[in-house]
Design a binder for these strands. Structure first.
Lengths: 242, 242
DNA sequence: CTTAGTTATGCTCATATTGTGCATAAATCG
DNA sequence: CGATTTATGCACAATATGAGCATAACTAAG
């Protein structure tokens, strides 16, 4: 049977379908560390556990649109860089029914992290991002007092994949700039890279590499109020992005 | 409203849901070039156009399982390396109804490509993989007589993304070995890389890089029947994969 | 006003990786 | 046996990265 025959003979209404949802991994920098924004589940199942914001996909709604709607309506953030991550389809990932979830990665500038935390039901969890060898170690979420947070459903897997994806794209895409304000110093940029990788970086080599790459342009402005030599502010030069 | 409230108040049966399908991009090497296996659509819509093999996801079936089932039942290949690629959710991507499709990448060794072509309804399309700058140019499919193939639905987008993903993973994962037989020469390995990248590679540098990486082990065996010095066969050394 | 303290920035040198070319090896074919 | 062709290893150049140091620029303490 060919695909065409199969599709022609298939009555979609006759079969039960999985439900389709989107889940958002909101990542940002907080206090110099990589942090995720999580919601505490108030009801069963998995009441009290921490979960990614999510919602079902409407029948006339794009996946990207569904992710944007969740970001706007549930997290209260208008714009952020959204990127599809992976689709999770384990049969028993939700105990209520079969839900296939398209995970999205949202990269928030530091100011948006603070904004979002002010909303009800949202809390930031610092992420422990160890650098255990090339591929990195296990990622775990801890609250501000250092206690490990239990995540609902398969959301720990989703979170771990998000951090790994972020790491992988870090040095050949512009993801780091999405976590920074418009103007930033080279040190801030380096700190973001180090937070994502979970490892310290060579200062000279990092600066040289970033400048040679041509993605950043000096603004001429300088930091103020520091007790030492002020650093120059740079901005992301989108025009020279490869 | 929190996520928990939303989910609790949501009656999944009350809303119309998108249908969920998987589509398979079958990539392999044929005559030294990167090729995709496509099916010609026999019926409307888009009759006569070329399409990726696909099928709907059962309500009690994992996404990976659905992809494996399509590979087995529609393509007739038992085992191949399957990897989730991206989920396509444009509202009008299928004119019949709303279908969200999880695209999978299947990497076939050269022998499996020939096997699969013997099955009814399957044909190989060579892929034009130009190297236009860093990110690569547009990917197009051509038949063996050189004519461009028109692809159904959004399958050209899916195909293009598959090749880009393959390119991106080429030099830090073992994807190339999935397209080769168990024993291969360094030249064969280089040809696979060149076919995927759409650009020639420096021979000395490539050999040195591959050997230094430690992923391949010499077998001691050599080519036979060549009109010149025979190359040594290597095998992929999975034990030293990072 | 001077000096200590701190970080920014640019420079140099050592090391590692990659690009490039060449010499030699090993097979077939005339 | 010599011509031809590709495989393999080596040497050198060019580039990228790691690491450290000298100087600059600011604040705060004295």
């Amino acid at each position: 049977m060919t695909e065409a025959e199969f599709l022609a003979g298939y009555d979609p209404a006759a079969h039960e379908r999985p439900a389709l949802a989107v889940d958002l991994v909101l990542l940002g920098i907080q206090a110099g560390r990589l942090a995720a924004l999580l919601m505490r589940r108030a009801q069963h199942p998995q009441a009290g556990l921490w979960a990614l914001p999510g919602g079902f996909v409407g029948v006339a709604e794009t996946l990207d649109a569904a992710a944007g709607r969740v970001l706007r309506d549930k997290v209260g953030i208008g714009g952020a860089r959204l990127e599809q991550l992976y689709t999770f389809g384990a049969v028993d990932r939700d105990p209520r029914m079969r839900i296939v979830s398209v995970a999205y990665l949202a990269l928030l500038p530091e100011a948006a992290v603070a904004d979002a935390r002010a909303k009800a039901g949202l809390a930031a969890a610092s992420l422990i991002v160890p650098w255990a060898g090339e591929t990195g170690g296990a990622i775990s979420a801890v609250s501000e007092d250092g206690a490990a947070l239990a995540l609902a459903f398969d959301h720990a897997d989703i979170l771990a994949l998000a951090v790994k994806r972020l790491r992988g794209k870090l040095d050949y895409t512009d993801v780091a700039f999405a976590l920074l304000p418009d103007h930033f110093t080279l040190r801030q940029l380096q700190d973001v890279h180090a937070a994502i990788l979970g490892a310290p970086l060579n200062k000279s080599a990092f600066r040289r590499r970033m400048r040679d790459r041509g993605w950043i342009a000096p603004t001429g402005a300088r930091e103020a109020g520091t007790a030492f030599r002020p650093a120059e502010f740079f901005r992301f030069d989108r025009s020279r992005e490869s």
